[in-house]
């Protein structure tokens, strides 16, 4: 960095010196050199596997290195569609999404608005509300498992205190999915709130002043000014919430392991079992792709509805 050149330096004005022309190849190559390492990474570990996963869903895949893939056509898909456990997993995933995405978005927005409007202790409140997002989900799942424990768990102690019989949160088919979804919401709200707070700060102060001057307040202000201006944030938060929810795995694997009787089995935990406990990798790929197809379908419908509304 600090090489000191003691040669007399050519002044740029020295026209007698031959001027080196710009090497067009070098300049043109620079952006490609800049993007190549990053693109190779996502190409190799996101794009290619996604593609292989799709192709692999038509094969029987042995795990042993060097063993040949065997073409099985749609067998993996028929196996998925004929598998009640897979049905259950897809159903549970959609239920889990419904139970987590909407509350996360609504509560996150509400809390962001509340936290923004506080005059005192704003930073402290924010920090407290951000913590769930940062926590290690496996560690927190361990804690939640203890909170939801049948005997001595806080949840049941609290119920007993108001005179309700204990609930077997994690080992009752009726409650297991709700229990893990509660953890998902606890964490999801924290993330969406951060995004919404960020979105709120991008609204210029002049807008608030103009609204105050015109007497636009409360619900009217939220509906006519704040929400429309936060549209990009809302879209981003929705996409992120969907992605987080369909990929829910950590707390489920720790708290219920998909049980009891597949009552909290989601596509990801089930894929994991099919792939890495039963080693049916082709079927696992097919399962992933069924879910992705459902997601793309939902995305397309939403998009159509959105653009129809725009018109």
């Amino acid at each position: 960095m600090t090489t000191i050149l003691d040669k007399p330096m050519p002044s740029p004005a020295a026209a007698d010196k031959p001027i080196k022309p710009i090497d067009p190849n070098r300049t043109r190559a620079t952006p490609y050199v800049f993007v190549a390492p990053a693109m190779s990474g996502i190409g190799l570990f996101v794009l290619l596997p996604a593609l292989l996963s799709f192709i692999g869903s038509f094969f029987a895949i042995p795990l042993a290195p060097g063993a040949n893939w065997k073409w099985v056509g749609f067998d993996n898909y028929t196996s998925v569609f004929g598998d009640p456990a897979a049905h259950r997993a897809i159903e549970n995933t959609l239920l889990y999404c419904a139970m987590t995405i909407i509350p996360s978005l609504v509560l996150g927005l509400l809390l962001a608005l509340l936290a923004e409007s506080l005059r005192h202790g704003r930073t402290l409140v924010r920090t407290a509300l951000f913590l769930p997002m940062t926590a290690n989900l496996v560690a927190m799942a361990v804690v939640f498992k203890w909170i939801f424990a049948l005997q001595g768990g806080f949840a049941n102690q609290a119920l007993a205190w108001i005179g309700i019989a204990p609930v077997n949160w994690l080992n009752d088919t009726r409650y297991s999915l709700i229990s893990v979804a509660l953890v998902g919401v606890w964490r999801g709200v924290s993330l969406t709130m951060l995004l919404f707070l960020a979105g709120l700060t991008t609204i210029p102060g002049a807008i608030h002043e103009a609204a105050a001057a015109e007497g636009i307040r409360g619900w009217a202000k939220l509906r006519t000014l704040i929400l429309p201006m936060m549209k990009p944030t809302i879209v981003f938060a929705t996409v992120l919430s969907i992605l987080t929810s369909i990929q829910a795995f950590d707390q489920i694997n720790v708290m219920t392991q998909g049980g009891p009787q597949e009552s909290s089995e989601t596509v990801l935990t089930y894929t994991w079992k099919v792939g890495f406990s039963y080693f049916q990798l082709g079927k696992a790929s097919a399962l992933s792709f069924v879910l992705i197809a459902v997601l793309i379908g939902i995305g397309l419908i939403r998009r159509r509805a959105f653009s129809a509304e725009q018109r």
Binding site: P12, A13, A15, I19, P21, I22
Partner: peptide
């Protein structure tokens, strides 16, 4: 009198 076409910005006077 010196053509500047091939001269990059930082080498121009």
């Amino acid at each position: 009198g010196v053509d500047q076409r091939a001269v990059p910005a930082h080498r121009r006077d």
